[in-house]
Design a protein around this nucleic acid. Structure first.
Lengths: 223, 223
DNA sequence: CGAATAGTGTCTATAAGACACTATATA
DNA sequence: TATATAGTGTCTTATAGACACTATTCG
């Protein structure tokens, strides 16, 4: 049958759950329950349970559910980090997933034991290579934001056109023209108006929109 | 110290090496030396050697070197495929890498034992989930081709502007205007002319170019 | 010179940015 | 009716596609 001559690596899954709070992008960190780095803040993660998880995506969902009770509608595999030295227990491999959720959903879950939200600009010193992992997640988010519906997953189910534009602006770190933004968004057609408006003050109410599809949509590109 | 209650998954690395031959995109397949699927064609791959490989990228390079003698200048991590049923030996996890090489380099290496190039449009039935893996690699290549220097890694070190355009056309499956293509490419500036021209017939010789940087460059995008 | 491919110029159509204007709510 | 935000129209500028033109080589 033949197997490897060397021991199998440790196989874990970590999750980078990002949300957008008043201070900007924030990442969910959890206090580690076990060694190594017990009681330190780190990305929520855990071993792959080969007797329970169908694949690593299921591991990611299980880990998030167990630590926060959350089930993010947007979850994608980010990258697999590996090597002999990233984990003091030995040669390890972490399949990292990347999730987005609106602040309104995450904030209540964080009151639970040991979870916290941390502004990505002010991260504490993190164990393993979790600092690098979060940096990779931010790069992915910022790249994909420019040509997809990704930032919308940081908003609640319905939102106004100005909410949407502001999320794009905050993720991309640039100003976007209101008129051009609306034009572009409307022609791509992956947001659709829903019945209802938002009234917030002494001015015209705003049409509410929602994602037309539950999954990520990408803008047309050309060479 | 705490470890997983369940056995660790099998950890392997597979490599999708693509090249562009007369028939279109071709993928390198190798005859399997061991069970399962012994003597069947499959993606070149192997176990992670925790006593020898610094990380999975090194595993990918080692596997390719051992099976073909090749060392591709372009190698990126594609995705990690995992699950209880993809490998008859049990719960497994394959970190898949994606490499590009010019046909002129791959073809000679393939004369070696058990390696073959196979047109991606006419793949045989492949073991494990290797069919799905190759499909994912093609999607990645075709997506990235539209906004990066990626297709240039399918060409030899120097090439003409028309070579370059034809590679983009073949990868993308679309026709590109010669003039517009040259304009776009030149303003992005990640190819630079080198001394020398190619003379091929009774007509004006063509300027030779090469990649300005050894690594992948991406076009400017805008929302 | 003719044929063939390399390379340039330019017109047009489309999309993006800037920004002013209109619409509609409440105080 | 003043004001604030939502939403539209339009001018300008940049970019992409189409395509004709010039350039240069060799037979």
């Amino acid at each position: 049958m033949g197997g490897p001559e060397s021991p199998r690596p440790i196989a874990t899954v970590d999750v980078v759950l990002l949300t957008l709070g008043p201070a900007g992008l924030e990442v969910l960190l959890a206090k580690r329950e076990r060694e190594p780095f017990r009681d330190r803040l780190a990305l929520p993660g855990g071993f792959v349970h080969t007797d329970a998880d169908a694949d690593t995506g299921q591991t990611a969902l299980r880990v998030l559910r167990d630590k926060t009770g959350l089930a993010p509608p947007y979850l994608e595999q980010l990258y697999t980090f590996s090597g002999a030295v990233r984990d003091p227990r030995g040669w390890s491999l972490s399949v990292v997933y990347f999730a987005l959720l609106p602040e309104q959903v995450v904030r209540p879950a964080v009151v639970r034991d040991g979870c916290t939200l941390c502004a990505v600009e002010r991260l504490p010193d993190l164990p393993f290579d979790h600092g690098r992992i979060i940096a990779a997640a931010l790069t992915r988010l910022r790249n994909k934001a420019a040509y997809s519906s990704l930032p919308a997953f940081l908003l609640p189910e319905t939102f106004t056109m100005d909410d949407l534009r502001q999320v794009y602006e905050r993720v991309l770190g640039t100003r976007l023209d209101r008129s051009s933004f609306r034009r572009k968004i409307e022609e791509q057609g992956f947001f659709r108006p829903v019945e209802g408006e938002r009234r917030t003050g002494a001015h015209r109410p705003a049409q509410l929109y929602r994602l037309a599809e539950a999954r990520l949509a990408e803008f047309d590109r050309t060479i």
